[in-house]
Design a protein around this nucleic acid. Structure first.
Lengths: 292, 292
DNA sequence: TATTTTATCTGACAGTAGTCAGATAAATTG
DNA sequence: CAATTTATCTGACTACTGTCAGATAAAATA
């Protein structure tokens, strides 16, 4: 576009802050200060560690204590001491509290759909834009965590991976890859691993490892969301999955890919992977191996 | 992408609010509450109407008065009564105040470039995404204002328009349209008009009107930024420029266009424009007229 | 000209966020 | 076991935001 980048960024900031301000007052719309509402949001019915909430919100212990007692007075939560460490507290949502959280979520949901309605025919574009911006802003906080390959988020990642393959690789068809994967056990300890990269609780990339024999593993399902590319996430995931493989005492890793996936192939080759004998069928046309 | 739209929107909100929060505290980093800093930002060296600032920020008159006096005590502004209406106040930035505003801007600038740096190779994509989101959020506040055709923003719009033409219309070359336009007088009262659509002080669309003879005008330079499409802005601009033409006592409007600009042509035809005899050269291939 | 409206100022007050110091009780460490 | 650390609680305090009522002076209106 036409303007100074800084001016564009400031305009964006103003627009978003105005919207977020409206969100704040709506929090107060339920007769509770923002701070207490934020705490309430993090308490789960099955119980949440008080210290964890405090860390997450960066609250002073005194303020936290006051919020908790205010919520308790409203019968929205109950607190007890952690039996394992009786200095620590555990907060639990009461049924009333659950209803209150649901009411907040309904408000948020309404406001969100209002924004999407305002975007009209461009809602998809707007969401893609939001993903990109959120991913950039969260960039330093992306966390890799092992996940069950049948977890809904893992399936989401794989679905996105398959449809990307279908779009780019000749003779690859998403329907050849059923979900949940009948082979999921192979990606689950002790046979394998499934890693997801999380950006603020949203999965943005994944990779899987599968044991082939006592000393050999196969790397599969390396996928990075379009919004999260250009941050070295694939490299980070590959390093992490190689570390997992070493921890499993594997000495060789293999993978199959297709030369049209140029970024992926370039990444592999630049990190010590070399051609090896084909060990699978089409749509693969490139087979690589790496000694650990 | 893969997740529930609402979840994506909430993640976006969290990411941006966290960032904006950091921006807020930096405002306080200069030892002044956010409210006063916001007021300071709106005061111009040549003097600003106090009531206008108050309306823009939605402040209570009492609070506003206190902010102004606090800023005055710091010698950042001076205030006087409006000679034309001695109930009203006018605030002026002192040189000290100008330096202070510059210091704020430097901080903002730093933070903005930090974000762009974080975006790395995707900075352009991020800015485009921000434009889109800001435009959607500001959607209801787009304002049409007549502008001088030589104003920098008008030139920005025209530059964007020409490069769009060059990209889409065969035989159109941006270098055939010098800026500032030697013909600018034609788009300036009393001969013509140049309208810009502003979204939070950023130009997002424009249109020009040029008198051909006592009763005929020509509409030119209809342009809408990519980020602002799909909101009916072109239609709004056309309606406004037709109103301007009527106010100038014109009875017929003409325009030239090219059939590859399908959205534009469709808009014209759906609002009463009909084919007319060619009155210009290539790259035009479609000539339309409308009786007012 | 009398009345009403408008723009601002002033003082009083309340709610929220946040900090700090000290107290308490339960782990952890030496 | 004594000393230290950790998690929480409590009370005191400050700063910022925001609201309300009343005062004042200058337009605008009847």
């Amino acid at each position: 576009m036409i303007l100074d980048p800084i001016a564009r960024l400031r305009r964006f900031n103003r627009a978003v802050v105005r919207e977020a301000g409206a969100l704040d007052t709506s929090f107060m719309g339920r007769g509770r200060p923002l701070g207490a509402a934020r705490v309430l949001h993090l308490v789960r019915p099955e119980g949440t560690d008080v210290a964890m909430i405090r860390a997450k919100l960066g609250l002073d212990s005194g303020l936290m204590s006051r919020f908790l007692r205010a919520l308790e007075r409203e019968h929205l939560i109950t607190t007890e001491t952690d039996p394992a460490d009786r200095r620590r507290g555990i907060a639990r949502l009461t049924p009333t509290g659950q209803a209150e959280v649901a009411a907040y979520l309904a408000i948020i949901h309404d406001q969100a759909s209002q924004i999407l309605t305002r975007a009209g025919s461009r809602a998809d574009e707007v969401l893609t834009a939001m993903d990109l911006i959120a991913t950039i802003l969260n960039r330093d906080q992306v966390e890799l965590r092992p996940t069950d390959p049948d977890a809904p988020e893992a399936q989401d990642c794989q679905r996105a991976y398959f449809s990307e393959l279908e779009a780019r690789v000749p003779h690859a068809h998403a329907q050849d890859f059923p979900l949940p994967d009948p082979d999921a056990d192979s990606y689950r300890p002790p046979l394998g691993r499934f890693l997801i990269a999380w950006s603020d609780e949203m999965p943005v990339a994944c990779v899987a490892l599968k044991r082939l024999d006592a000393s050999t593993g196969e790397v599969k399902r390396l996928w990075v969301a379009a919004s999260a590319r250009g941050q070295g996430l694939a490299r980070r995931l590959m390093a992490a999955i190689e570390a997992e493989a070493r921890a499993m005492n594997l000495r060789t890793l293999k993978l199959e890919t297709n030369r049209v996936l140029t970024e992926a192939v370039a990444l592999y080759r630049s990190t010590g992977w070399a051609d090896t004998a084909p060990f699978t069928d089409i749509p693969a046309d490139t087979w690589l191996a790496k000694a650990l």
